[in-house]
Design a protein around this nucleic acid. Structure first.
Lengths: 193, 193
DNA sequence: ACTCCACCATACGGTCGAGTATGGATGGCT
DNA sequence: AGCCATCCATACTCGACCGTATGGTGGAGT
């Protein structure tokens, strides 16, 4: 059995470990927290380790962003694709989005850094994809082209803005029950009967 | 006439000049651009000048934020207060918000930095005020308490998200005409007939 | 047992921006 | 004229963070 995979390789790190740590730091404290020495401390090593796996900080960021983009696609966009009924699909999308998945937390963090040259193209792609999915669903639900585009933009703005608002401390956070009520209200308002 | 006010005091600077420059930089390039040496270059002086007017960078930021908060109140909130009809008031608020006033640009920039300890309380106050205005208008328009709160949150999220989306480069910016159409669509969707 | 490679530590250099120290210029007031 | 307050320039220190150079260690393979 020379093919015995190592069952506890967790003393030495891999590039993936750094990428995941980067995404964790990103979700918790924003893009500024994705700093080499900071991540090294979090992982219990020093910079010497990092610069073996990555040539530069930007390389790590690039890899982490690509990882997130794939994760986001698999976790939120793909599962709702096969739903046939457009109204049902929209509804499911809204509900899925309302659960606080890690992907959304990272999305909110990246939103705060869209000026960054590495973040900007990623966010542009993700936003465009989501807008397209929404617009297509609204078209299938009977909206004409212009109305579908506008409604999609409105729904997507509501999503983005809600995340931003939730992230805002010092504002009364809504409890689980009112949160469910809010989602119902949004669905009733933005999805035609 | 010892009370002769200086008519061209514009070679020496005052604290207000620094505050305005700070808000300009904030609107253009975000909170990170509110840097002492950067602003000094913009104003044609050096740091030596700054540290005469302010003890620290945070003091400038604090002053600038207070100035913006007042400006925002006077420029967008106050003018729509006296409108009696709640639906008309909401409509006017939406239209007023859709014009790209400097206050909104700064709002968007601050949104990107809500983690900052000086920004957070300001944004919390502003958001709460705006949510209250919206919720009150919706109540007066016939919504029950819960529905009004939800619709207010939705409308405010749409506002915030739209600003964020507009700020996003690499996304097709909408032309003037479709922009007007979008605002109409939002009004039709979020304000009851 | 020896080697080699993957992985990591240590120590250093460079940049950028905040803040300090101190002296120079300018203008009103007596 | 002389003085003092106001405003600004110059020249530093300090800390955070990126990146580099180089040496050390443990384990897999022979």
């Amino acid at each position: 059995m020379t093919a015995a995979v190592k069952l506890e390789p967790r003393n030495r790190l891999s590039a993936s470990d750094w990428e995941e740590a980067a995404l964790d730091a990103l979700a918790e404290s924003g893009l500024g927290a994705v700093a080499v020495e900071s991540l090294a401390r979090r992982l219990g090593v020093t910079k010497g380790s990092f610069y073996w796996h990555f040539p530069t900080r930007e390389a790590l960021l690039k890899a982490a962003l690509e990882r997130w983009e794939r994760l986001d696609e698999d976790e939120v966009m793909a599962p709702i694709e096969p739903i046939a009924d457009p109204r049902e699909r929209l509804c499911e999308l809204f509900r899925r989005v309302s659960r606080e998945m890690p992907s959304h937390v990272i999305y909110a963090a990246l939103m705060q850094a869209q000026d960054h040259p590495l973040v900007q193209p990623v966010m542009a792609r993700v936003s465009r994809r989501r807008l397209d999915v929404l617009a297509r669903a609204y078209r299938q639900a009977g909206f004409d082209r212009a109305a579908a585009a506008h409604r999609a933009r409105l729904a997507y703005s509501a999503y983005t803005g809600f995340l931003e608002l939730s992230r805002q401390p010092g504002l009364p956070k809504l409890r689980h029950e009112e949160f469910e009520d809010y989602v119902d209200h949004v669905i009733a308002t933005l999805i035609p009967a």
